[in-house]
């Protein structure tokens, strides 16, 4: 088989044609609906906590904690993965997705021990999000300081 650069390029075009794409519109609609439902649940929790007399600040913290707990529980029960398969970005983007990305490696790598397994691998998916999230907030904070 001729593996010249020209032939490789031709092959990559063939591959593009032969490879089915994801169903973008269908996936977007599913992500929108499920993501929306998760946010509605969050709002419901927030409203309920406010009714109980919590301050605005405390309400936010408690709501996040409840959502993180629920997603972690569902991951442990093997249900969040199934939700994610259906909803895609709809269940990844909210804070519940973050919880899932920490819990799932924790469960998977527990077999290699609590230190070298779970401890070392727990942030294997969420680590980059935390690192670059913190870094971005520092940069934005500095910019904000100067333009304020």
């Amino acid at each position: 088989m001729d593996n010249s650069a020209k032939n490789k390029k031709l092959y990559q075009e063939m591959v593009k044609k032969a490879s089915p794409n994801s169903h973008i519109i269908k996936d977007c609609v599913k992500a929108f609906v499920i993501g929306g439902i998760i946010c509605c649940i969050g709002q419901f929790i927030t409203n309920y906590l406010k009714e109980l007399g919590l301050t605005q600040n405390d309400t936010g913290i408690y709501t996040s904690s409840v959502l993180i707990f629920l997603a972690s529980l569902l991951t442990g029960l093997g249900l969040y993965g199934k939700l994610g398969k259906f909803a895609g970005a709809g269940s990844i983007v909210p804070i519940t997705g973050f919880s899932n990305s920490v819990t799932s490696p924790a469960i998977e790598f527990k077999k290699e021990g609590f230190i070298t397994g779970l401890g070392a691998k727990i942030f294997i998916v969420a680590g980059p999000v935390i690192l670059y999230g913190v870094l971005t907030s520092v940069v934005v904070g500095i910019i904000y300081y100067f333009i304020k």
């Binding site: 969040y80 993965g81 939700l83 994610g84 398969k85 895609g88 799932s104 998977e108 998916v125």
Partner: peptide, 17 residues
Amino acid sequence: EKQFRFPLGLGTQRPLT
């Protein structure tokens, strides 16, 4: 999956390919 890709419980979609 554990060795080559993501943890099984991670809620992602697999590409059609």
